[in-house]
Computed example of a mutant assay.
Amino acid sequence: MNRRNFILTSSAALAAASLHAADEARLTDCHVYLGANPFRKLGAENRDEFIQALGKRGVTDAWAGSFEGLLRRDVAAVNRSLAQACQGTMLRPCGTINPTLPDWQEDVRRCTEDHGMRIIRLHPNYHAYDLKTPAFRELLALSAKHRLLIQLVVQMEDERTQNPVVRVAPVDLQPLPGILQEIKDARVMLLNANSAMLLRHVQTCPNLWLDFAMIEGVGGVENLLKTWPQDRLVFGSYAPVFYWESARLKLQESALSPAQSAAVHWQNATALLT
């Protein structure tokens, strides 16, 4: 090999290695919360400290919902505050919509037009509606029209650990497959679903994504990917409710291929917003 070819070959290899290293450094956490939890102090009350903690752990992009969206009725104020808190940071705001409130369609408009949000995060159990509610279908259709991703939080925590005065059951996912077959352009991501829920109801939905925050068991992510499509699983830590390191350990204990790892770390999330 002459000098010129050696330099060209070495440069190409170096560039490929640098690109691979840059890809490996990307990490999108699709499931965090910001602000004060209504039931306990968790560590996301101080935005700057929370962002710094995520950055130290290698997170380059985080999708943040607001704890205030669980119980407050002034959804417009919640979303406005969240958008302001996320502006200019690694945090991507996920707007709260409560379709049981009057004029909730205007809240969707504000999220998209006023705040430039691409993601809506729903809490049906805390907002006292189920997936059979006609407004849920209307919301999915509206989200498809605006190319919004819907994040549906199945549960915030196990019922056994909840305050007995405010005990909230998980969302019943049984109606979801039929609804998604009906509204094929809607895109829904389940947050905090466990393996039992997935096996019973939703594995066959082509327009459904999943985070692994509540997928438990040794090699849980590896085992999940034996039946769940690789391109529909994303990294979700559920920080600060869960210790962020638990999400990292779930990946480390699973034998994932480089392609699977890249898909879960950032590729699938990026594709959803392009």
Rank of each mutant, 00 (worst) to 15 (best):
V75I: 12
L225P: 00
N125S: 08
I119Q: 09
V32I: 10
I215Q: 04
Q230R: 10
P164K: 05
G116V: 11
I51R: 02
V188H: 06
Q162T: 13
F6R: 15
V218F: 14
Y33N: 09
N98I: 14
A15K: 09
L27G: 10
A77I: 13
A22N: 12
L82G: 00
L101T: 09
G43R: 15
L190N: 05
D107Y: 00
E222Y: 15
M214E: 14
D114Y: 03
Q87T: 11
A36Q: 06
S261L: 14
P124T: 02
A262I: 07
R160P: 14
F212D: 04
T60C: 02
Q230F: 13
N79W: 12
L140N: 02
D29Y: 00
S10I: 11
L8W: 03
P170E: 04
N194Q: 13
D185L: 06
C30H: 04
T9D: 12
A196V: 08
R47G: 00
F50H: 13
P206Q: 09
A141F: 03
N268Q: 09
Q267T: 14
G43H: 04
R72V: 05
S143W: 01
M117D: 00
D211W: 00
K41T: 09
L71W: 13
Q181G: 11
W63L: 02
L122K: 00
A271L: 04
M90C: 14
L272N: 09
G95F: 12
A213K: 01
S261E: 13
W63G: 02
V78C: 04
H265N: 11
L54E: 03
L173N: 05
A62N: 05
R121H: 07
T133L: 06
L140A: 10
P134R: 00
F235H: 02
R73L: 10
V218T: 11
V108G: 01
S81P: 14
D48H: 10
L19R: 08
S246E: 09
K56P: 04
T28H: 12
V59M: 06
E106K: 13
H127M: 08
W209P: 00
S81G: 03
S66E: 03
V241K: 13
L42A: 03
V32T: 14
A16I: 09
A15T: 15
A269C: 03
L14E: 08
D61Y: 13
